[in-house]
Design a protein around this nucleic acid. Structure first.
Lengths: 191, 191
DNA sequence: CGTCTATTTGAATGTACTCAAAAGCGGTGG
DNA sequence: CCACCGCTTTTGAGTACATTCAAATAGACG
């Protein structure tokens, strides 16, 4: 049940059984049905989520009223509205289940307790966020330097099941293009 | 001399005089002349830099041979090629001084020692990187949802001295547009 | 003063968007 | 099991935002 989480923590730190047990005591397991929301814009974000099974999307709604996907979180991803979660102020993002999704959720107080009880976790999240930052920085560079077609190819390469698990309009929104244009691009790629 | 650094550390953690003294012992002060490079693509990044005075730009060169600016680091910013620094593998980024710049540099072993000697620093860098991630995520959303003109206005708002300290072609590259188009935009804004 | 680089301007072009309409697809109820 | 509804994807025409290339102008520095 908790193998994936254990594996994830062990990527950066070593926890003994007692520590891991403590970690488990602080989190709660929850299943969200497809299309339901874990976070709503305007509300203060209560949890950070670890996806054990399923798929989530983090998005916001821009001034023109369009939804824009920020990231997809599949198995073994941590996801939250980090600004809202850490500041405990109302956030701008929505988090929605694209499939029936089982998450392990950690509240802010739970996380703070864990950080005091298992100081190694400071290190774990430090490294996790460094890697997240690096990935996001690359994405900015891709937006600056690559065409929509290159970004699409790269995305599919990094996340091959995306086309099976995510609708085209959500992929288009993530890539920063319109669904119409993605459709035209794909028909063009075959020739 | 070290007031800015002290202030920066104190944003997220409290260090006593002894701990701060230890921090200072681990870093070295260096001044780089305008246009000189602190990091070269292809080499392993030795240091993480704190900008005490001056201005740096982090950039890479894309497939087409163009320089693309990733970020500008002015006073009180930490900057490095994080991938290369933490993995100690060759990196893809260049870091160059846009003004004569005084930095405090911290080598990988120095940082690792500090993290052992002052465990609170794990927390400091964790929070620092969370904030960096949030900022980068916002930048991705801006690239997806905003026009070049909106991105330009926002950039100038967040960094008003930019126009005095950074050449237009570097700003254009940061915004993901050509210098020609930035020029046309600016003349258009006046009418 | 001359050289080198940065900025401006213009014309032609390309990439991606908007709007509209048609086609496809999945689920639901009769 | 078929018909219908709602949503997603495809296709097309016209348009807009931003690029490319070229040339002129302006600025910075030795």
């Amino acid at each position: 049940m908790y193998e994936l989480l254990k594996q994830n923590l062990n990527r950066h730190i070593k926890l003994n059984e007692e520590e891991f047990g403590l970690f488990l005591k602080r989190l709660s397991v929850k299943t969200y049905l497809k299309d339901s929301h874990l976070i709503q814009s305007g509300q203060t974000c209560k949890y950070t989520y670890f996806v054990n099974k399923g798929l989530l999307r983090l998005y916001d709604i821009n001034k023109k009223g369009y939804e824009k996907n920020t990231l997809f979180a599949k198995e073994e991803w941590w996801v939250s509205d980090l600004y809202s979660f850490h500041s405990q102020k109302p956030g701008a993002y929505f988090l929605q289940a694209l499939e029936d999704t089982e998450v392990f959720q950690l509240s802010k107080p739970a996380m703070e307790n864990l950080l005091l009880e298992i100081p190694k976790l400071e290190r774990f999240w430090r490294i996790l966020h460094i890697n997240a930052f690096i990935a996001q920085q690359e994405r900015v560079m891709d937006m600056i330097a690559k065409t929509a077609e290159e970004r699409y190819r790269d995305f599919i390469e990094k996340f091959p099941e995306a086309e099976l698990r995510i609708s085209q309009r959500h992929i288009a929104s993530y890539l920063g293009i319109t669904p119409e244009f993605l459709s035209k691009m794909k028909s063009g790629l075959k020739h």
